[in-house]
C-alpha cells in the first residue's frame, strides 16, 4: 500500500505576542502524517506539542507556513469552513476530557452531530452504538461527574468519533488517568488505528509513545 500524506505542514511557525515581546513557540516546523498512520508527539513540557496539535486541528492558526489537509490548503479557509473541517474530518480528545457537565453522557456524545445537522433519531442511534463500543452502554443518561476519569475519557472518544472523522487528535489523553484507565484508552486508540483512522497522540510517557508507529520529538519548538 502506497503511503499517502494526509497532513502536510511546511515551515510552520507560531508566535505569541505579549505587550513587550514576541515569543516564538514553534520554529519552521515541517512535518507529515500519512493516511492511517499512528504518530506520537513527545517532548518536555512547554516544547510546543499542544500548540502544534491545535494548529493541526485548526483550533489555532499558524503565524506563517503552509498546511495542507487532504490536499487542501486549509490556512486559506474562512472561519466557518474551518469549523466545518473540525466538525467532519477531525476528532479531538483532550487531557481534561472537556465534557459538558450540565448535559448527560449521550447528549455530550452527539454534540458534533448537532452541528453537522444530523437528525435527532439518527444521531442518537449512532451515539448509543459508539457508547456501546467504548463500553459505556449502561451510562447513557448519567452526568459526566458521575463517571470515573477513565469512563469520562471514553465518552470523549465516543464524541470524537461521532461524525466519522478520518483523523483523531489526542492531547495527553492519559495524562489525567491512572495506569489501568490509561491502558484502556490506549487500547481503544489502537483499535481505531486498526480500523484505518489516522491518529496523532501527544504524550510525554515513553511507554505510551512506544505503542505508536512513529515518534516525533519536539524541543523548544523544533523537531529533533
Amino acid at each position: 500500500m502506497k503511503k499517502q500524506p494526509v497532513i502536510i505542514l511546511t515551515d510552520i511557525t507560531k508566535d505569541y505576542a505579549s505587550e513587550d515581546m514576541v515569543t516564538r513557540v514553534l520554529h519552521e516546523i515541517s512535518f507529515r502524517v500519512n493516511v492511517g498512520e499512528f504518530v506520537a508527539i513527545t517532548g518536555p513540557s512547554g516544547s510546543g506539542k499542544s500548540t502544534l496539535l491545535h494548529i493541526i486541528g485548526l483550533l489555532d492558526l499558524a503565524t506563517s507556513g503552509t498546511y495542507f489537509l487532504h490536499e487542501k490548503d486549509v490556512t486559506k479557509l474562512t472561519e466557518d469552513q474551518q469549523a466545518s473541517v473540525r466538525n467532519n474530518e477531525i476528532g479531538f480528545v483532550f487531557q481534561s476530557f472537556n465534557l459538558l457537565q450540565k448535559a448527560n453522557v449521550l447528549d455530550n456524545v452527539v454534540l458534533p452531530a448537532i452541528y453537522a445537522g444530523t437528525g435527532k433519531a439518527v444521531r442518537e442511534t449512532k451515539g448509543r452504538t459508539l457508547l456501546e463500543k467504548v463500553g459505556l452502554a449502561d451510562h447513557l443518561l448519567k452526568r459526566p461527574n458521575q463517571l470515573s476519569g477513565g469512563q469520562q475519557q471514553r465518552v470523549a472518544i465516543a464524541r470524537a468519533l461521532m461524525n466519522d472523522p478520518s483523523i483523531i487528535l489526542a492531547d495527553e489523553p492519559t495524562g489525567n488517568l491512572d495506569t489501568t484507565s490509561g491502558r484502556d484508552v490506549m487500547e481503544i486508540l489502537k483499535s481505531l488505528h486498526k480500523e484505518g483512522k489516522t491518529i496523532v497522540v501527544i504524550t510525554h510517557d515513553a511507554s505510551i509513545a512506544n505503542q505508536a508507529e512513529r515518534i516525533v520529538k519536539l524541543r523548544d519548538g523544533r523537531i529533533v
Binding site: 472561519e79 469549523a83 466545518s84 466538525n87 467532519n88 459538558l100 454534540l111 458534533p112 452541528y115 461524525n163
Partner: peptide, 16 residues
C-alpha cells in the same frame, strides 16, 4: 466561555 470554546472545537459555527 469554556463551553463556547468546546462547542467551537467540535464544529459550531459563529452563527450557531
Amino acid at each position: 466561555t469554556k463551553e463556547i470554546g468546546l462547542r467551537k472545537a467540535l464544529g459550531a459555527k459563529r452563527s450557531d
